[in-house]
Simulated assay, not measured.
Amino acid sequence: MTNSLRPHGSQRTPLPQEAVPALPTPRDQEAGQQTTAPPAPSAPTGQKPKQRDAFFDNAKYLAIVLVAMGHAWEPLTDTSRTAEALYMTVYTFHMPAFIMISGYFSRSFDMRPDRLRRLITGVAVPYLVFEIAYTLFKRWADDDPTYDFSLLDPWYLTWFLIALFVWRLTTPIWKLVRWPIPLSLAIATLASVSPDIGDDLDLQRVLQFLPFFVIGLSMKPEHFQLMRRRSVRMASVPVFACALLFAYWAAPRMNSAWFYHRDSVQELAAPPWTGPVMTLALFGCSVVLVSCFLAWVPRRHMWFTALGAGTLYGYLLHGFLAKGSRFWGWYDNEWLHKPLGEIAVTIAAGTVITALCTPPVQRAFRFVMEPKMAWAFRKDPAEQARGRTTTGA
């Protein structure tokens, strides 16, 4: 990822290589922490390899815990105003945070063959596998054998993978244009009032979440350092408090579907003028809350830091339990809708997602999440030439 969040003088941390998902696998992040220059032929004896950046691993783990909790709170929102307020607050910033981090680690992406291979094996292949797995799961668990399989209509969590694939491919364009953030925000605004976009590839979400990816592309290490200033941390406390109070007020008055960014205003039965207003308002709120969230992410190594390497695993695997809990009627128990039940659901969600990010789970599912698939690709002529040069030397 990045070698340091503490730039010295006028020196700036080199651009990282791409880490394919915003929830990077260990192999992807290790690649992302290296610079584009090859390693020195003879490194000093005993030199330690580059370490993962604890700050980003911590941020990914804490954000994925909030994702799981948000999914666990959703069935409680009909009967609990507090759960609805927490749900709306978390949904304002947890996916924007992931998407910004993804964009940040896409800054060095180009169409080089090795990076395209990593994009295919780290995003496209997991999308195909989990789209099939989720479809089969829904047919079985929801007793819906006629549910259609479609690669063009992502189901549940797989939308993020297809969105990431599209965003990554457009990275060279955003690096080329002069005002990438305003342009991406204009595209998101237009998408919000364009019902004809349809559901293919979940393009509404792809376009409406696009500005957060572009912001990540435009960020530098010093921007994260600014977020971690003491003044920002102190200001974030009342900001979060105000956000929760506003969400509590808005819970019975506002449609939470606005936070999904998957529908146009026409599909939400809202006047057309609300599209630009809500797009800009939610964008501003999300950026502020993401900054407040990152301001409190620990920089040092924590007990959960190592779990940050497994957030893609937790993200995709917990979807089976999240949907299964609805299909199997787990929330039909009335005690779950009481305060103690809501607390129990929250703790259970955090525990389950933590377990799904652990190294044993990563090892068990690495063949799906990080397939090498050398058999599927032609050998890169440049790599072959380098290999012949090395052998000849």
Results as ranks from 00 to 15, higher is better:
8 H>F: 10
10 S>R: 15
13 T>K: 02
15 L>G: 14
20 V>E: 02
21 P>G: 08
23 L>I: 10
28 D>C: 08
28 D>G: 10
33 Q>V: 15
45 T>V: 14
49 P>G: 09
49 P>R: 09
54 A>P: 08
60 K>Q: 11
63 A>Q: 03
64 I>M: 10
66 L>A: 05
67 V>I: 14
68 A>Y: 03
71 H>D: 07
74 E>M: 12
74 E>V: 10
77 T>K: 07
81 R>W: 09
88 M>F: 08
90 V>C: 08
94 H>R: 10
97 A>G: 06
100 M>K: 01
105 F>S: 08
107 R>S: 08
110 D>R: 13
111 M>W: 14
114 D>C: 02
128 L>S: 05
130 F>N: 02
132 I>M: 12
138 K>R: 15
144 D>F: 11
146 T>R: 13
147 Y>R: 03
148 D>M: 13
150 S>C: 07
153 D>A: 07
159 W>P: 00
161 L>F: 07
161 L>N: 00
169 L>V: 14
177 V>A: 08
181 I>G: 04
188 A>W: 01
188 A>C: 05
198 G>P: 15
202 D>G: 10
204 Q>V: 04
220 K>H: 15
221 P>M: 12
227 M>S: 04
230 R>M: 15
237 V>M: 09
238 P>M: 07
244 L>S: 05
251 A>F: 04
254 M>E: 11
260 Y>C: 03
261 H>W: 13
262 R>D: 14
271 P>I: 08
280 L>G: 06
280 L>D: 02
286 S>C: 06
292 C>S: 13
292 C>V: 09
292 C>T: 06
293 F>A: 02
294 L>V: 10
297 V>S: 01
300 R>G: 15
303 W>A: 14
304 F>S: 07
305 T>Y: 09
305 T>A: 10
310 G>R: 02
314 G>V: 09
315 Y>C: 06
319 G>N: 03
322 A>Y: 09
326 R>E: 15
328 W>A: 05
332 D>W: 06
346 T>R: 06
348 A>Y: 09
351 T>Q: 04
355 A>M: 11
362 Q>L: 13
362 Q>K: 01
376 A>Y: 09
377 F>R: 00
379 K>E: 13
384 Q>V: 14
389 T>V: 11
